[in-house]
Structures are given as C-alpha cells and as structure tokens.
Design a protein around this nucleic acid. Structure first.
Lengths: 209, 209
DNA sequence: TGCCACGACGAACGAGCGCTAGTGAGCCTT
DNA sequence: AAGGCTCACTAGCGCTCGTTCGTCGTGGCA
C-alpha cells in the first residue's frame, strides 16, 4: 500500500525566506533536526543554517543546546500525561479507558512525530537529574496503562497473562507510528488511531463483538 | 511485576581485567557503548577506556569508527533475514508462518538487544550507499511479513483491515522488547517470545481456539 | 532629530573529536 | 643470540564543536 511513507524528508521543509527569529522558531528548527539526525548528530551550525542565521545569533533566543533538548522532552512528556488524564475517566469501564488511552496516545504520536522521535531517541542524552525526571514521567504513563489493563482483566473484560507485558507491547506499538506515518499518505491521523485502538484491544484480549 | 528491568546497566560490564585485544573484542565494546549512548554520543576514547587501552591502539584492530557501525548494522540486519528464511517454510499455512516469523524475530531481539538498539537508532548515521542498503534489508523483512499476513487474510485464517498496518504494528512491538528485557528478570527469552507470538496472532486477527 | 534597546554579526576561545605517524618494548622464530 | 613481527604507546595533526564577547547597524520612541 502507498498509504504510508518512510521518507524522512516529510519532517523538514528548508526555510526559504528568513522570518523573524523567536525562541519558538529556534525550538521548532531544533526539533526538526534532532528528529532527523539525533541530538548528538545535530550541530548548532545546522540549526542556524536552516534559519538563515549565523550560529551565535541563536544564543539571543535560547540558553544552550542542552536547554533545547530539555524543553522539547519536557513539553512532550508532559503532553502525554496531560492527554491521558484529560480523556481517561476512571469512572468508565476499563475497556473504555483503554480505548480512549490508546486513541489519544496514537493520535499524539501521529500529530507530534518529531517530538516522539526525539524523546525516544535522545532522552538519555539529558544530564541528571533531568533524565530521571523524564523517565519517571514515562513510567507514570506506563503504570497507568498497566493498571487499566489489570482492572480490565479483573473485571473479566480483558484476557492477558501479564498486564505488564501487554502494556509494554501496546505502548511501543503506538509509539512506532511516529516512525512511518506520513501526512501525505492515504490515512488520516484519526483513521490510524482507530486502527491502532483495535490492535490494542486485540492484544489486551478483548472479547470479539 | 519485577520480571523486567529498564536498567540500562544491564548492557555493560566494565571490563575489569585487560584481556587480549582482537577485532571482535573491539567490536563488542563498541556495540555496548553505541547501544547505551548512541553512535554520535560515543567517542573512540570511551571504547578505549573500557578496554583499558589508549585510543590509537584501537586502530590496530579496526578500520574506522564508521566501519564499526557498518559492521554492526550489517551483521544484525543480515541475521534478521537469515533467521526469517531459515524458520519460515512457505509450504506451511500462513498462520504457522506468522507464528514462526514472530518467534524468531522476538527471540533475536531478546538475545541481541544491543544490536537491535543500534540498528534502530543509528542506521541513519551510516554514509551512503550503506544507509540505503540496510534500509532495503529492513524493507525486505517488512514486505515478507506483510505477505504472510496478506496470505493469511486471503486464506480466511486472519482478519485485518490492512496487512501493512498490522505488519508495522507487529514488527515494532517485537523490536521494542530490546528496550526493556533484562536477562536477570523472571522471564526467559523463550517465554517472552511465546507471549509475543500470542500478541502478534491477536493483532493479526487470528480466530481464538 | 536624537537616543536607546534589540539583536545579528565577526572573531575567537578552549575543548574534544577522529585519525596518523613514528617509536620502542616484548615475543616467536631460527 | 640475533632478527623480525606484532602491537600498544606518545605526540600531534586538522577540524569541528558549543559557547562568549564586543561591535555595529537598525527600528521604535521621546
């Protein structure tokens, strides 16, 4: 099928005209390049080049290269947790919680592909204590999803041997969407999210309707 | 559950006593460090330090830093394809092929965690034409798995809307095992592989027994 | 019109990188 | 005992990195 693309150029449009430089513009360019080449594989001179500016000018709009990464990872991981707690209602039946949790998670990874790639690849390049804090956030989401699955099993709605294993599998399955999705493909973010919700429910052993 | 570990130190044991230096020893140390810090995040001086040797000594046993990465990725991707064709018998029913393909794939990612991490993270850091060649191998495996699923759907043994999407989901689910598995955990490679085969069959819509 | 804050710039820094060359110590062979 | 080979070493190369500093042109405001 031609619905998807592995073309990494889907991430980048070389800024043709030189627009006003702001912290957000710098952050956005860094995000694109970090996602493409990785944190250590990206030089500040490359970010400056994309922005049609000399390297030192960047320092008028940022703290340091490390700060860029920290801000990116911080916002991204906070967003995932915010998504989860916004859409998952503890009063809902576990299956419904799993459905909603998976949907936002996939949807975020489709609409925030660059952030997802950077978080998954370069969180380890942060300095302490930031590494620990960011990993703690990921663990929080992981445990929340695991609890939902465990509750579903306890309620007889789901059937898995190990909620932890199922939770790992589902999460990584969703994350990987960022690696192949293309906005130019045949599938919309919504369609992909719906498909992956179905996959997640199957992995979790939801009884067929 | 305490069956798994996210401790990255599971990858590295700092070589206490200085053993004889050989190309394989250098490659192994590079593999460990690349998996931990990434290709661009690893300096040759760090590899040398682990081996209790000065940096230039490495060049008696390797071509260049880039050669190390190339060798690692080359062996790893070739191994995946060899695994697939060794265990998957085209004469088998599609479901059986999917079962075997998933099992070796997970098993390899459990027993070759470092290789998997490096391939997924740093293949893009290779120079042309190596990048293209390695990606072509990954595509070959991807298409082979997709064909198996499509055949299963055609035979009425599996049920998915899009074999491509299911193939993506299953592959990445298996790959991610390298990210959390610990040999010190409660689960053996075989047990994890069996569990993930079950997950894969569920994603592919295999009818429950 | 004069002033001032903003910010892009050239120059340059110290550090670290991958890698090369030449030297000399230890070992095997004869 | 003498020779040659292997290989780890010191020294140092050219380069790029992230970052700092002081200058200077410009646009908004008095």
């Amino acid at each position: 099928m031609s619905a998807v693309s592995t073309n990494p150029a889907d991430l980048a449009e070389p800024r043709a005209t030189r627009t006003a430089l702001t912290p957000d513009v710098v952050l956005d360019a860094a995000l694109t390049l970090f996602a493409q080449r990785g944190y250590h594989g990206t030089a500040l001179s490359q970010i400056a080049e994309v922005l049609r500016v000399r390297t030192p000018s960047l320092y008028n709009h940022m703290g340091s290269k490390h700060d860029l990464l920290l801000t990116i990872v911080d916002r991204a991981t906070a967003g995932v947790l915010a998504d989860f707690h916004r859409v998952v209602d503890p009063a809902d039946p576990p299956v419904e919680q799993l459905r909603k949790a998976t949907h936002v998670y996939v949807h975020r990874h489709v609409t925030h592909r660059r952030e997802a790639l950077v978080v998954n690849r370069d969180t380890g390049s942060l300095a302490e204590p930031a590494v620990g804090e960011m990993q703690a956030r990921r663990r929080e989401h992981e445990h929340a999803l695991r609890a939902v699955i465990a509750a579903g099993v306890a309620a007889g709605e789901l059937r898995v041997e190990s909620p932890a294993l199922a939770s790992f599998a589902i999460r990584e399955m969703c994350v990987s969407v960022a690696r192949w999705f293309s906005p130019h493909g045949a599938l919309t973010a919504e369609q992909v999210a719906d498909q992956y919700v179905e996959f997640a429910l199957r992995v979790a052993g939801h009884l067929e309707r």
